[in-house]
Amino acid sequence: MPLRADEITIKYGAMTALDGLSIEVRPGEITSLIGPNGSGKSTALHALAGLARCTRGTVSLDTRPIETWRRRDLAKRLSFLPQNPTSPENMSVEQLVRQGRFAHLGLFQSFSRKDLAVVDWALEQTGLVALSDRDLASLSGGERQRAWIAAALAQEAEILLLDEPTSFLDIGHQVEVLELLDRLSTERGIAVVLAIHDLNHAMAVADNVILLSKGKLIFEGRSQELANTSYLQTTFAVHGNFEASASGEPYFRVPLASTPT
């Protein structure tokens, strides 16, 4: 499979969004991208999805540069969910999820039994079966986010790139989404890369944590390894400390009123 970015630099005018970043995306592995606002998490995901032009360096899938792939072929391998996508008018949950099958269908081909089964599977995985007929505009933010995740799942891609998929969800739905990603990666060998703000969720779900700051890679490795450094404190400029949680995962606690002045 491997999807990889080799020393990519992305500049928008004078602003450097990414500075020589390398990432390797491996099957069955969850990678959490963390970092302050504007650190380049979203740009990195766009680059991996072939949606941002690299000023230097290359992103490649199966050793082939990503910009040489037809979008249709790419969509069968890789699905990308941006932050806050706009939902078209008058569209139901099921209709949105069906759009995930676009790459698998010809322009005139109708939905096969298999396509419909995949759509049903995606609705089930995201707990949306009861809501499948509802208009997207009538959903809560969390329900709509899950509908978009379902549409991405319906692509049946082996690589899933998600830009802050849990940001608008309450804690219950956040955990649900993360558990779903964990299940997909262990049971189906799907590679997941997600940008995420909640550091503890990032560390709990990830096999590999990537910490970015100002477009540069600060740290890459396992959560436990990150817990032995002070990168989180320095990068986010907070006085926090690691505690051991009951499950053995590191837990980063930041007490309020301790932010350096």
């Binding site: 999805a49 969910l81 706009t86 078209p88 676009f102 991405a152």
Partner: peptide
């Protein structure tokens, strides 16, 4: 028909779904 339906999405979304935007 199907491409125009896709074009109602944001460009990034349409391309990720597999449309040659």
């Amino acid at each position: 028909y199907r491409p125009v339906l896709m074009l109602r999405f944001d460009e990034d979304v349409a391309r990720s779904f597999g449309l040659s935007y």
